[in-house]
Design a protein around this nucleic acid. Structure first.
Lengths: 336, 336
DNA sequence: TTGAAAGCGCTACCAT
DNA sequence: ATGGTAGCGCTTTCAA
């Protein structure tokens, strides 16, 4: 851990001026080949490292993109992030990730950090509709692309999402088709488009089938494991007559299954279950979970490309990319 | 996306000098209360955002810590990262994550970026021993703490790891105790301490039992799913007489199980298996995998605290924290 | 308590 | 092809 040489030191050491050294750094072709080599040799020898901060200072921004994921340990985000990293890396940007933990306050915090650090761009995956967020987003000094969730009140923002309404509609319709009437819904966070659209899809499917949806049939969740676990207990304690549930994400579903099995109930015999999102490990579970969703990697790639265009200054109208989700029915579901 | 106000604008707008505005920003108590309020009001009103880059420029570094994880989608890293984020956040640092993908070139790249961006610190989780890496590490301009893997040739570096040798020794000894003789090992990357120490533990346990380890019994892996999958195929094609394997991480194990089951074999009837690391989803798998390892969150917390001390300038001797792993035998293992 | 001015390390413009 | 110099926006002496 030693202190660093500046461009000025290299200048002195090589006998050239600061300007010429800078030109070498910038790959300016106007520098004579021999000069460049000499300077490069000195840099090598003294392990010179360009100061990106100073560079960013004059450039105006730093070639770094912040990805605000919900939960870095969740496969959905992990998968998307990996693709984004690669696309951005190719384009000369470093992608860094942080988790909002689905916490709106943290989102605001990270967005502020991105502005203050003059990052080149931001990918926000857990936009939680709120006046504060919208105000902040409209004041950003760098491009922002939403992924996964969009904001109804900000149609001028780019986003890449899946059709959550249709996904839920498909899934619940399937449950209905095979005989279920009492289908409950463990929702995502109310006020987020993922949560609300999935809820609407559920409601509409029920409505189209002529089945009532009473308030007790819908529970708001927080997307975490514990929530699903507790929901299982709740369903049992309240002695509901649900024969199937649709759950807004994979993590809660895993929690639900744990709680349900632990209580001595079975799947699909005592409960059919279908959820959004998919994790590869699910393939090796005792219970093969039926899922609906899209490949997070695809979303990620599209998002990164979109962001890159914006960083480069594209001013085309707001892009709204909506992917169609697939429904995969497996053994977690059984007719009545 | 609009352009930004500087400290100078706030100065003009409020009628004070930029020095005073800066003092307000820095929380200097020498500013008169009324002045501070006036200036703060102007900042609010115009949504002024301090420029962290410029600030870092004079401060010398940016309050950001880079975590270089192996695979961001892997539970081990996800778990550790989450804890690190929280500890660092409390201390006023922003933790950002990137994945090395176990690729030494990427490690070097990210380490360079960290230096160039004058970050406050780095946590490196996938150190791959090489002269280049060691040279780079010894030239760092910020503190670096290793987690998960350490570097044999750099004992002067802080690290937080688990006792991989002992973990593997315990696991393999257990297999031996219940009757296995032909135990194979799907290793991590040779040259990494995690890989090598686990291999040594395996070899020593076999040796202590008096069982030979021939070269075909040890295969180098790359820690990825596909690798485990192919290893299953390989074992079958080569008609080995292995009755048990020890695998260097969870991801390869999941791949192995997929390949093995797909080929019509069973676990533990046709093969006992024990691996390093743990993922919660494993609890809900058909096959309950026996694991050895530690809580990644603990490692993460300790690492973050250590780094924080170094950032604050602690010059105590190199810290080497070694956690003892636990062995959990489940249904993936059966005596012969 | 406040202001003026120097300087952090770099790029970019204007000279030569 | 190279050097001199003016900033980028901020913090931090030093003066007042």
């Amino acid at each position: 851990m030693k202190t660093h040489l500046t461009i000025m030191d290299i200048a002195r050491l090589s006998g050239y001026s600061k300007s010429t050294v800078s030109r070498v750094l910038m790959g300016d072709p106007k520098v004579k080949a021999r000069t460049r080599e000499k300077i490069k040799k000195v840099m090598e020898e003294y392990h010179y490292k360009r100061n990106e901060i100073a560079r960013s200072m004059v450039k105006g921004n730093i070639s770094m993109v912040l990805i605000i994921a919900g939960d870095i340990a969740n496969y959905f985000y992990g998968r998307a992030v990996r693709e984004i990293e690669d696309v951005l890396f190719e384009a000369g940007y470093m992608a860094v990730v942080c988790s909002s933990d689905y916490n709106p306050e943290k989102e605001l915090h990270f967005l502020n950090v991105a502005m203050e650090c003059k990052l080149a761009g931001v990918i926000l995956m857990t936009a939680s509709e709120s006046p504060k967020l919208c105000r902040l987003l409209s004041e950003m000094n760098c491009p922002v692309v939403l992924m996964n969730r969009y904001l109804r009140s900000m149609p001028n923002l780019d986003y890449v999402v899946q059709d959550n309404y249709q996904g839920a509609y498909k899934a619940v319709s399937h449950l209905i088709k095979i005989g279920h009437r009492r289908i409950f819904h463990l929702s995502g966070v109310f006020g987020t488009t993922t949560g609300d659209d999935r809820l609407s899809g559920y409601q509409q499917a029920m409505k189209d089938a002529g089945y009532p949806v009473t308030p007790d049939m819908v529970m708001q969740g927080n997307l975490k494991w514990e929530c699903g676990y507790q929901y299982a207990k709740w369903l049992i304690e309240n002695d509901t007559d649900a024969t199937a549930i649709s759950v807004s994400n994979d993590t809660m579903t895993l929690g639900f299954i744990s709680g349900w099995i632990e209580a001595g109930r079975r799947i699909p015999d005592d409960m059919s279950i279908v959820c959004f999102d998919y994790t590869p490990l699910m393939d090796q579970m005792e219970i093969k979970i039926s899922t609906v969703g899209v490949d997070a990697g695809e979303l990620g790639k599209a998002t990164a490309k979109l962001l890159l265009e914006r960083i480069k200054g594209s001013d085309k109208p707001p892009q709204h990319m909506v992917y169609k989700p697939d429904l995969q029915i497996k053994s977690s579901v059984k007719g009545t």
